[in-house]
Computed example of a mutant assay.
Amino acid sequence: MATDPAATRFDLRTLDQLHLEDEAAFRPVGLYADLKDVLLRAGTTFRLLPAPSAGRWDRALFLNLAYWSVDGGGDVLVDDHLAADVVTHVAWHHLAAKALPPPPGGHPSAESLFLGEAIASAFDLYLVGRLLGHTAESQFLDSQVPAMAEAASAAGLSDDGFEALLEDVTRDPERAFEDLRELLFDATVALLACRRADDALAALATLDGHRFAPLLHHYELATWVLDARGRGGSLAPDEAVRALDRTLREAPVALDWLERHWVRG
Score class of each variant (00 low, 15 high):
Ala2Cys: 13
Thr3Pro: 04
Asp4Trp: 04
Ala6Thr: 12
Ala7Ile: 01
Ala7Thr: 05
Thr8Phe: 11
Phe10His: 05
Phe10Asp: 12
Leu12Val: 12
Thr14Asp: 11
Thr14Leu: 12
Asp16Met: 12
Leu20Gln: 09
Glu21Val: 14
Asp22Phe: 04
Ala25Gln: 02
Phe26Ile: 06
Val29Leu: 13
Val29Pro: 12
Gly30Asn: 08
Gly30Ala: 14
Gly30Tyr: 06
Leu39Gln: 04
Gly43Val: 00
Gly43Cys: 02
Gly43Ile: 00
Thr44Trp: 12
Thr44Glu: 15
Thr45Arg: 14
Thr45Gln: 15
Phe46Ala: 07
Ala51Lys: 13
Ser53Asn: 09
Ser53Thr: 11
Ser53His: 13
Ala54Arg: 10
Gly55Gln: 00
Arg56Gly: 06
Arg56Glu: 09
Asp58Thr: 05
Asp58Trp: 07
Arg59Trp: 15
Ala60Lys: 06
Ala66Leu: 09
Ser69Cys: 14
Val70Asn: 13
Gly72Val: 00
Gly73Phe: 02
Gly73Asn: 06
Asp75His: 15
Asp80Thr: 06
His81Lys: 03
Leu82Val: 07
Ala84Phe: 02
His89Lys: 11
Ala97Val: 05
Ala99Gly: 06
Leu100His: 02
Pro102Ala: 08
Pro103Leu: 07
Gly106Arg: 09
Ala110Glu: 01
Glu111Tyr: 07
Glu111Lys: 05
Gly116Phe: 03
Ala120Met: 03
Ser121Ala: 13
Ala122Leu: 03
Leu125Met: 08
Leu127His: 00
Arg130Pro: 06
Arg130Trp: 09
Leu131Met: 06
His134Cys: 12
Thr135Trp: 03
Gln139Val: 14
Ser143Leu: 14
Val145Pro: 07
Ala147Met: 11
Ala147Gly: 11
Glu150Thr: 08
Ala152Pro: 00
Ser153Trp: 12
Ala154Trp: 08
Gly156Leu: 00
Asp160Pro: 07
Ala164Tyr: 06
Leu165Pro: 03
Asp168Pro: 08
Val169Asp: 02
Val169Pro: 01
Thr170Trp: 10
Arg171Ile: 07
Glu174Asn: 11
Ala176Arg: 01
Phe177Met: 00
Phe177Asn: 00
Glu178Leu: 12
Asp179Ala: 13
Thr188Cys: 12
Leu192Met: 03
Ala193Asn: 11
Cys194Leu: 10
Asp198Leu: 10
Leu201Thr: 14
Ala202Cys: 06
Leu204Ile: 10
Ala205Leu: 14
Thr206Glu: 15
Thr206Tyr: 13
Thr206Pro: 08
Leu207Gly: 00
Asp208Ile: 09
Gly209Val: 00
Leu215Asp: 05
Tyr219Ala: 04
Leu221Ile: 03
Thr223Glu: 15
Trp224Tyr: 11
Trp224Pro: 05
Leu226Gln: 15
Gly232Leu: 09
Pro237Val: 04
Asp238Met: 01
Ala240Pro: 01
Ala240Cys: 09
Ala240Tyr: 03
Arg242Met: 04
Arg242Tyr: 05
Ala243Trp: 04
Glu250Thr: 12
Glu250Ser: 09
Ala251Thr: 04
Pro252Asp: 12
Val253Leu: 10
Ala254Thr: 00
Ala254Arg: 03
Leu255Met: 08
Leu255Lys: 10
Asp256His: 15
Trp257Gly: 08
Leu258Thr: 10
Leu258Ala: 05
Leu258Tyr: 10
Glu259Leu: 15
Trp262Asp: 12
